[in-house]
Nucleic acid binder design. Structure first.
Lengths: 193, 193
DNA sequence: ATAATAATCTAACGCTGTTAGTTTAACGAG
DNA sequence: CTCGTTAAACTAACAGCGTTAGATTATTAT
């Protein structure tokens, strides 16, 4: 009936758009289908399940985050690189909260391809730390610390957990980044010893 | 029919038990009702909605976390207090992941009482930092940084985001806490200046 | 003993993801 | 230019979800 020849890419694209504008929580296959002027069951000609679509949106989200991070650290070193990387991460989380949530909800879905895509997030961090004289092992730990700080900050701010005190959230954020840089410098001293 | 006179507390207690053993994601009112040998509709004599029950479980979770934190810092000061507090937080997140998730999913539900309960989480952190010579404003920021690190670390480990490298997660955790203590010491110097 | 309260029930609504089976439009081959 | 294949779309249905309205019934208070 008035066949429009939708492709898998069309559907993933529409899902991304819909999640970004209406929110991840209110996303549903039926609503997606309705926007494409299709019945929900017809989606199954292009995707295997809701989970698979979710994963596909996740790939997109991770690639977007990686691109923003690589742009941020281009031509920068040490503290400047770290600050710029953190800012890019922070801005991504704040400006595209629904897409960011997709990344977070991703690893729940056990999937090796996702696991591999995780390296896309790690790589820019390792590059940004390259200017510090650290052992490979230190970098693996510090990469985790960086991600913890960034993710913890973004998700708690988004959840409204930072409204308890009247002090500026931006100031808190800069203090958190300063803490990580202090740790980097301190680790560098230890590596030299 | 064989009325058993269930109370609101019975239902909240059963929900906690069920979430803790079966997981938050697979929790449903119908399954809860079934375990209480009741029909789902009957739950509405004791609770107003699924959200309200969820909030009630959240109160329990926050009070449990607060208790663990206060126990942890009793009679301790400065770095020792912070490390002990962090350990308690970390252990809570690892040992009771489903209950911990309830706390995280809580602020989404706009509720002033929850907002107030949030202070229960902040208070032990402020107490633990009391031994450092910091301004009140510094403490408000640092409290946010602490929560970011802890929450970020716990939720990423739980989500499986830390499996990318073969280095010990416990070592990464200790490095993260060390970073926070470095920041505390550094902030103390600034406050004196 | 009677009246009020509240715990429980049944039945239903609209929402969700998903499957099976059917129609039909488009495309490629003879 | 028709015929056969492919696949995009359909309808109908199922089981699950939270939730509501209204009837029933056991306990409690008077």
């Amino acid at each position: 009936m008035a066949r429009q020849g939708l492709t898998r890419a069309d559907i993933i694209g529409a899902a991304i758009e819909m999640i970004e504008s209406e929110g991840l929580h209110s996303f549903s296959l039926r609503e997606l289908a309705s926007r494409l002027h299709i019945k929900a069951a017809s989606l199954y000609n292009h995707i295997k399940s809701s989970d698979e679509l979710h994963t596909e949106v996740g790939y997109y989200a991770i690639s977007e985050l990686k691109r923003a991070q690589l742009d941020a650290i281009a031509g920068k070193e040490r503290a400047e690189a770290i600050e710029s990387l953190a800012d890019a991460y922070y801005r991504f989380g704040k400006e595209r909260p629904e897409i960011y949530k997709v990344i977070l909800s991703l690893p729940m879905v056990r999937n090796d391809a996702i696991h591999t895509a995780g390296f896309d997030i790690v790589e820019p961090i390792m590059t940004a730390m390259a200017g510090y004289h650290l052992t490979r092992e230190q970098m693996m730990h510090l990469q985790r610390v960086f991600r913890s700080i960034m993710h913890g900050f973004i998700s708690q701010e988004e959840a409204g957990c930072f409204r308890q005190f009247p002090v500026d959230v931006g100031d808190s954020y800069r203090m958190a980044v300063r803490g990580f840089i202090l740790l980097l410098e301190n680790s560098e001293k230890e590596a030299r010893a």
